[in-house]
Computed example of a mutant assay.
Amino acid sequence: MSVNVGPADRLIRLIAGVVLVALALTGLLPHPALFWISLVAGVIMIATAALRFCPLYRLIGLSTSKVSNP
């Protein structure tokens, strides 16, 4: 698995993911569907930040990382 998420992108994903998970877990979202959407999106963002790999970036051929991949 190659790295395709750069440091700034990684930080933004981590912060946004934590905010989305916190919104879901604090009960501030009025509709159950919003709870699940927020929770799943937040977990995915945190995971892509931790792994430094985004499958969607791979599909569209994008990389924000300066690390050269073999």
Rank of each mutant, 00 (worst) to 15 (best):
S68F: 10
S65W: 05
S65P: 06
G17I: 04
R13D: 11
P32M: 08
A41P: 00
L20R: 08
L11Y: 03
V18Y: 10
R10L: 03
V19K: 01
L39N: 07
M1C: 01
L59H: 08
L11P: 00
S65Y: 06
L20Y: 06
I44A: 09
W36E: 11
P32K: 07
A8I: 15
I12N: 04
A49C: 01
L62M: 09
L34K: 01
A16R: 03
G61D: 12
M1Q: 02
F53V: 07
P30F: 05
V67M: 09
G42Y: 04
L34H: 09
G61I: 15
V19N: 08
I15F: 07
A49G: 13
D9C: 14
L29N: 14
S63D: 08
L23K: 13
A8K: 11
L11M: 14
I37V: 15
V5Q: 02
G17E: 03
Y57C: 04
I37W: 06
R58E: 15
R58D: 14
V19S: 09
T26D: 10
S65H: 04
M45F: 10
Y57G: 01
L62E: 15
A8Q: 08
G42P: 06
L28H: 13
A50L: 15
T48K: 08
F53S: 09
R58Q: 09
I46P: 03
S63C: 14
T26V: 14
N4W: 00
A8W: 04
R58W: 04
L56G: 05
A41K: 00
I46Q: 11
R52G: 01
R52H: 05
L11V: 12
V67L: 13
L25P: 02
I37T: 13
L29W: 12
G27W: 12
A47C: 05
C54A: 02
I15C: 07
M45H: 13
A50N: 05
V5I: 11
P7Y: 01
P32G: 10
L51D: 01
A33G: 03
G6D: 10
V18K: 02
L56T: 03
A49D: 06
V18M: 08
A50P: 00
S38V: 05
L39Q: 06
V40F: 04
L20P: 02
F35E: 14
A49R: 07
V5D: 03
I12H: 00
A41N: 04
V67D: 05
V19R: 10
A41T: 09
A8P: 00
V43W: 01
L59V: 10
P7V: 01
A16P: 02
G61Y: 07
L59Y: 08
S65C: 06
W36G: 07
L51V: 05
P32V: 13
P30T: 09
S65R: 06
L28I: 13
G6P: 03
L34G: 13
A41S: 11
S68E: 15
N69R: 09
I37E: 07
L59A: 15
P7M: 02
V43G: 03
M1A: 03
C54F: 00
V21D: 14
W36F: 13
L34T: 07
R58C: 04
S68N: 08
I46T: 10
